[in-house]
Design a protein around this nucleic acid. Structure first.
Lengths: 220, 220
DNA sequence: GTCGAAAGTGACTATATAGTCAATAATGAC
DNA sequence: GTCATTATTGACTATATAGTCACTTTCGAC
């Protein structure tokens, strides 16, 4: 049983990860999972750049060689984590009640981001770090942009029912940027001087205002 | 003439940087400036963690030892840059026309952020990176938080004239977080899929809506 | 011009990290 | 059980970076 070092979802063809059947496959899956969750912890604690492979394998309680059997380098495991996090966030966005108004839809989007932020602070930090890779290194960026585009597309498809035919994709993209920016930005800045409960009570009235602004922007 | 390696504004007492008088002082000032601007470039290109001292000194066309004569390490020069950037941003915020309405004040805040973003993309990236140091390493964080607090206070003092007496500081702080979050977040995300002109046309209607919502939030 | 003091230099050392690989352990097929 | 296959290991090498320091250059006082 050989593991393709770069055999993850990010290489064009999506690999169907069929359920592990025997002990070896289970062990491999368990090892990969340990590595991924250790990397997530370490990346969000120290930052992606500052984190070392040794940090990851020590946190995972595995030998260093094992890391290189599963991932070719730090960028690859980072890519997998970004993918995972975005999928989780998109999953939350998808399950929306039918027959919702546009305000409902917007509330839903913001609430789901908030929930994601509360439940997955490490992933939240990771996504924001990933976001900022943008200007940092073009090579990593291009590899990174694809999952973010899927994220924007998820927001767009949620909102397209409410949007007039004439509104072009660019306009919706702008809108998605604003939502993502507001939600991520608010929580990011809120972290500086606010306790968790404060964030909750603080975001509520702002969220209402924001929803009003955005819906009037969309239907205009 | 001796340079205190940690003799910058960040250590409690604010040092008055009197104008250089002789050639030596001019040379020192020039060297420091070269180091700072090289560091700014390098940090925003590669990321603070990934950037090395050699990157900085090579970019500045100076010997490595010179760096250590002016700054004790990377964190210190980073601190100076954050300070500088925040000061620049606060400076922009301050010069507001007297007799402005609350909508004017909000517009002004958002416009100044936008201008800062356009004119100082490197600083913008740096501040956002600094912002995220939060969860990454507590030691660096505490050193970092002080300028961000000054930033929040600048926003608060701009808005306090319009706010009812009963509104407590915490509430205003929340508001400042939301504004900063929205503006920084929007631009950060906008970078992913938008050209510069698109950002400008994209932000405009959102800004108007946002201002309306926020002012009603403040005066309520 | 001379001289003392401070700024600037870059080769050097010490250290930390990435990535390798020969050896070991676990597993499945028979 | 035996054996072939493959996952796992961690000591090892190669390399990159932080930080130092003896030396050179620049400057100002006289």
């Amino acid at each position: 049983m050989t593991i393709e070092p770069s055999g993850n979802k990010r290489d064009g063809i999506v690999e169907i990860p069929r359920k592990p059947v025997n002990r070896t496959e289970k062990r491999v899956a368990k090892t990969q999972k340990k590595l991924l969750s250790a990397a997530l912890e370490v990346f969000s604690e120290y930052g992606v750049d500052a984190a070392t492979i040794d940090d990851i394998t020590q946190r995972a309680d595995l030998g260093k060689g094992t890391f290189y059997r599963h991932f070719s380098d730090k960028a690859e495991i980072m890519g997998c984590l970004i993918d995972q996090a975005i999928e989780k966030l998109i999953g939350k966005l998808r399950n929306m009640d039918a027959g919702a108004t546009i305000e409902d839809a917007l509330e839903h989007i913001i609430n789901m981001h908030y929930q994601f932020f509360l439940e997955n602070q490490e992933e939240f930090i990771l996504l924001f770090q990933g976001r900022l890779f943008l200007k940092l290194d073009r090579r990593i960026t291009e590899q990174m942009e694809e999952p973010f585009n899927r994220y924007f597309e998820a927001i767009e498809s949620l909102l397209s029912p409410y949007v007039s035919e004439k509104m072009d994709m660019l306009r919706i993209r702008r809108f998605a940027c604003a939502v993502a920016g507001f939600v991520f930005g608010f929580f990011s800045f809120a972290m500086i001087g606010m306790e968790s409960e404060e964030i909750e009570t603080g975001i509520k009235p702002l969220r209402q205002s924001f929803v009003k602004s955005l819906s009037s922007f969309l239907v205009q």
